[in-house]
Design a protein around this nucleic acid. Structure first.
Length: 570
DNA sequence: GCCGTTTTCGGCCCGACTGTTTTCAGTCG
């Protein structure tokens, strides 16, 4: 699909115009880009029909630009913008607390053109001297650069998984077996590149990969390995191996490195040699296994280890002892306990959300619009909650999916809730969340949240650390204490499945589970497509060794109700 | 640049926080 490429260009234009201080136009471009990105239909179809302007947010000017991109593969206007503004300034704007104005000022007055230049000036203390900046800002900039670098070159799951699936679809006909491996197969929260392993007609597989529409550049092209760079700078490697080695190669290329080191060491101790071609007797070099992963692990005397666990975090010992967890799967998920409708900042109606939940085979969902204090998200007042209730009642008559009447109530600075308790008591489910004052010190933040828990009304603590991958660090908080309080008050800790959040993360989720806290996996969907994020939350849960029993939205509706009500009475 | 129209031009989410100031600009959600 060409949509992604066009959306990216429009986003870029939006950023560049914003840097120039142009009013309103940036928003128009960004809006159009977002719309295009979320469309299921191919823009090419609209182009051919000549009705691009039917798409919301696309008018005369943007239509012309889309046509130019489709017809020439390029856009003159973008080059013109780059004559005025260096490319690296867009990265500078990604640093928290630096927006278009500050980026422009840094460029004009200090000649900062990219992150490297920004770091240089910050380290020299030149930024603090600028009017409007100061020492605190300079420190924050340095920290911000560090965070950006930690994720640079890495991509979020929801970009990579669909892309990997598209590639597999594209080359599949020439392959006997084909699978993703690497961090993608382990569901790591950020992914460096796409690794795909196949058996079959190597020549044909490589030919079709090079042909894949989103390929921008072929980096290497061989018989057994081909690397390409895709739109957005994503690299994909495809390897073709002999069928006899497929399992061994899959095991090797899935990693993690740490897991493989441990496993190979264990193999040596047992008189074997394990490499990407197979499992061999150390002396005779006879191949004992290699076609499937299962036989390799089995031969080593252990259960097959799910890729999500392969981090050398105790999984090999557990596999040897037959004590691997029975990991939660998507099939166990019976509902989604965080989503927003168009009553607050969601894009779809309650009924549309419910229909999609039906398609996903869910038994229940919770509608959890924001509370009044979050004006930006069009948070609801008590009165609006009542009105929304009528709509929920109405939709309930038309579906078998149970609808929990809920809220994501803002936890205010002092730990009180942004809605009267008696209003909250009338709801089926209450999520509590922090949306402001991220910069409090850890003690204050911790007591703020614990105070909110002690109201006894919160069922689920949503996105518990507030982090956004590559955008915002988690706020300072004593998570141990929070988890303890959650156990005491029987509050479920959320794994927010939105791919930019994944919050709790893997380690925190495991920590919460081991402390005896219940977990809720919620997508925080703001439109029907976001309901599909559930798999990313399940990915985190699996990496955290969670079983279905640990997660409340695997419960039957009756059991979930009991959990929610028991909590309220207790 | 887009949209809607009792507006073909005028409005476009807007309040809170932060770090810088010394009354506010810029950023964020």
């Amino acid at each position: 699909m060409i949509n992604k490429k066009i959306a990216n260009i429009l986003y870029e234009i939006g950023d560049l115009l914003e840097l120039q201080g142009v009013a309103f136009k940036p928003r128009a471009y960004t809006r159009a880009a977002r719309k295009i990105e979320s469309m299921k239909e191919d823009l090419l179809d609209y182009y051919e029909e000549g009705n691009l302007q039917d798409i919301e947010g696309i008018g005369r000017a943007i239509e012309d630009k889309i046509i130019e991109i489709i017809e020439t593969g390029d856009l003159e206007y973008l080059h013109k913008l780059y004559e005025e503004i260096p490319k690296g300034l867009i990265d500078v704007m990604r640093v928290p607390d630096i927006g278009p104005k500050k980026a422009k000022k840094l460029y004009d007055e200090l000649g900062v053109e990219d992150l490297e230049g920004l770091r240089d000036k910050a380290e020299k203390g030149e930024i603090a001297k600028l009017k409007g900046f100061g020492e605190r800002t300079e420190e924050k900039i340095l920290k911000g650069i560090e965070m950006l670098e930690a994720v640079s070159g890495r991509h979020l799951m929801h970009e990579m998984i669909p892309l990997a699936e598209e590639i597999i679809q594209y080359v599949r006909e020439h392959a006997d077996k084909i699978e993703t491996c690497g961090s993608l197969r382990r569901w790591q929260e950020t992914i460096g590149d796409i690794d795909i392993l196949a058996t079959g007609d190597g020549q044909a597989i490589m030919d079709s990969l090079v042909d894949f529409p989103n390929v921008e550049e072929v980096l290497a092209r061989g018989e057994t390995k081909t690397s390409v760079r895709l739109i957005g700078g994503i690299q994909a490697d495809v390897r073709v191996v002999d069928g006899k080695s497929f399992g061994a190669a899959l095991q090797y290329f899935t990693g993690s490195k740490e897991h493989n080191v441990r496993l190979r060491q264990y193999a040596i101790d047992k008189g074997y040699k394990l490499n990407e071609y197979g499992l061999f007797h150390k002396d005779s070099e006879e191949r004992i296994a290699g076609e499937t992963e299962e036989v390799i692990y089995e031969t080593l005397g252990m259960a097959w280890i799910p890729p999500e666990l392969r981090e050398d975090h105790g999984e090999i010992d557990a596999a040897l002892e037959g004590k691997l967890p029975e990991l939660l799967t998507m099939k166990d998920i019976k509902g989604d306990l965080q989503m927003h409708s168009n009553w607050s900042d969601g894009r779809n109606t309650i009924e549309e959300m419910v229909r999609e939940a039906e398609n996903m085979g869910y038994g229940y969902i919770a509608i959890t619009d924001h509370s009044q204090g979050l004006t930006i998200a069009n948070g609801l007042t008590a009165k609006e909650l009542e009105e929304r209730m009528e709509e929920i009642e109405h939709v309930r008559e038309k579906t078998d999916v149970k609808i929990l009447n809920g809220i994501e109530v803002d936890i205010k600075k002092d730990g009180s809730l942004d809605m009267d308790i008696d209003v909250l008591e009338d709801l089926d489910i209450v999520l509590g969340a922090v949306h402001s004052n991220f910069a409090m010190d850890a003690n204050e933040q911790t007591s703020r949240i614990k105070d909110a828990f002690s109201t006894g009304i919160i069922d689920i603590f949503a996105h518990p650390t507030g982090r956004k991958i590559g955008e915002r660090e988690p706020y300072a908080v004593n998570l141990n204490e929070i988890i303890g309080a959650a156990v005491d008050h029987n509050v479920a800790m959320e794994i927010n499945a939105s791919p930019v959040r994944l919050d709790l993360d893997t380690l925190n989720s495991r920590q919460a589970m081991e402390a005896g806290a219940k977990i809720s996996i919620g997508t925080d969907a703001h439109d029907i497509q976001h309901l599909g994020f559930m798999k990313y939350g399940v990915g985190v849960a699996r990496r955290a060794w969670l079983e279905s029993e640990d997660v409340i939205n695997t419960y039957s509706f009756e059991r979930l109700k009991k959990f929610l009500e028991g909590r309220k009475n207790g």
